[in-house]
């Protein structure tokens, strides 16, 4: 299940990383605005929650960590 979760995280990461840079910037997040039902503020909140190191970009590891927590949260609901 862990491998499956991480595989899914990678697929979602690619959806955000439109240019295939290998990381996600705030600008990438803002581009998702038209595609996801989230406001710019919410996308910014997501970005900042996932950007643990606050270095301005999301690495696949940070993204997977956030997704892993989400999946963990989901189990309890």
């Amino acid at each position: 299940p862990l491998a499956e979760t991480m595989g899914k995280a990678k697929e979602l990461f690619v959806l955000c990383d439109k240019e295939g840079k290998g990381f996600i910037t705030k600008r990438d997040m803002q581009r998702l605005q038209g595609e996801l039902p989230l406001s710019p503020e919410q996308l910014e909140t997501v970005f900042e929650s996932l950007d643990r190191e606050s270095n301005g970009f999301l690495t696949p590891v940070e993204f997977k960590t956030g997704f892993g927590e989400f999946v963990g949260l989901d189990d309890t609901t």
């Binding site: 979602l12 996801l36 919410q42 996308l43 909140t45 956030g66 997704f67």
Partner: peptide, 29 residues
């Protein structure tokens, strides 16, 4: 604790984000 409240709100937004991404992925093959 305001920090805990903010954390809980963020979790909701994160869940919304990941759910939307997941449905986007499954919705568009």
């Amino acid at each position: 604790d305001p920090n805990m409240k903010a954390g809980a709100a963020n979790e909701g937004v994160l869940a919304n984000f990941f759910n939307s991404l997941l449905s986007k992925k499954t919705g568009s093959p």
